[in-house]
Simulated assay, not measured.
Amino acid sequence: MSENRTGKRIEASGRTLELLRTVAAIGPASATEIATELGFAKSTAYYHLETLADFEFVVRRHDGYQLSMNFLSMGHDLVNQLDIYQVGKPQIDRLAEETGELCILMTEEHGYGYYIYDNRGEGAVNFDTIGHRKHLHNNALGKAVLAHMDERRVDEILDRHGLPPTTDRTITDRAALKEELATARSEGVAFDREEQLNGLCCIAAPLLDSDSGDDREVKGAISVAVPASRARGTYFNEELPMAVSDTANLVELELQDY
Rank of each mutant, 00 (worst) to 15 (best):
R169W: 04
T170K: 13
T172K: 01
D173H: 10
A175P: 08
A176M: 03
E180T: 11
L181Y: 02
L181P: 07
A182D: 12
T183H: 14
A184Y: 09
A184E: 02
R185Q: 14
R193N: 11
E194H: 12
Q196R: 14
Q196G: 15
G199P: 05
L200Q: 02
L200D: 06
L200C: 05
C202I: 03
A204W: 09
P206R: 06
L207V: 01
L208W: 01
G213K: 12
G213V: 06
D214Y: 02
D215R: 15
R216S: 11
R216T: 06
E217A: 13
E217W: 02
K219L: 15
G220M: 07
I222V: 14
I222S: 00
P227N: 05
A228Y: 09
S229D: 06
S229V: 15
R230C: 06
A231V: 10
R232H: 07
R232C: 10
R232Y: 02
Y235C: 11
E239M: 01
E239H: 05
P241H: 07
P241D: 05
M242K: 14
M242G: 00
A243E: 07
S245I: 06
T247K: 09
N249C: 13
L250D: 15
V251L: 08
L255V: 06
L255H: 07
L255R: 08
Q256L: 08
Q256G: 09
D257K: 14
